[in-house]
C-alpha cells in the first residue's frame, strides 16, 4: 500500500516545531504591543504566515508530499490573495 512509502516524522522533530511555533506566538504578541502603525498588520500576518508554513510542511507533512499537492496548496493561497487584492481595487478607490 502507498502508506509504506510515506514519510515518518520523528517525535523530536515535531517537538522542535512546537517550540518554534511557540516562539513565534510570543514574538507576535510582543511585536504587536508596540504601535508600528500600518506595519503591525503586515508583521502580524507575516508571522502568522511563517507559523502556517511550519504547520503545513511538518505537522501536515506537506514537505514530504508530491510536488503536485504542494503546488496546489500554494495556488489556493495565491487565489485567495488575488481575490482579496481585487476586492480592494474597489474599496481603496471609492
Amino acid at each position: 500500500m502507498s502508506n509504506n512509502s510515506s514519510h515518518i516524522t520523528e517525535y523530536k522533530v515535531l517537538g522542535r516545531i512546537l517550540l518554534i511555533l511557540m516562539f513565534f506566538t510570543f514574538a507576535t504578541i510582543s511585536v504587536t504591543s508596540f504601535n508600528l502603525a500600518s506595519f503591525t498588520v503586515t508583521v502580524a500576518l507575516l508571522i502568522a504566515g511563517i507559523k502556517g508554513y511550519f504547520v503545513l510542511s511538518y505537522f501536515m507533512h506537506l514537505k514530504y508530499e508530491n510536488l503536485l499537492l504542494r503546488i496546489l496548496v500554494g495556488m489556493i493561497f495565491v487565489l485567495f490573495a488575488l481575490i482579496v487584492l481585487i476586492t480592494f481595487i474597489d474599496y481603496s478607490y471609492r
Partner: peptide
C-alpha cells in the same frame, strides 16, 4: 483526522493576531 485537526489549528493561527492583537 489529523489533517483536519491541523486545519483547525491553521485557521486559529490567523484568527488570533487578527482578533486579539490589533493596534
Amino acid at each position: 483526522g489529523a489533517l483536519y485537526w491541523h486545519l483547525v489549528d491553521l485557521i486559529w493561527i490567523f484568527l488570533f493576531p487578527l482578533m486579539y492583537l490589533i493596534t
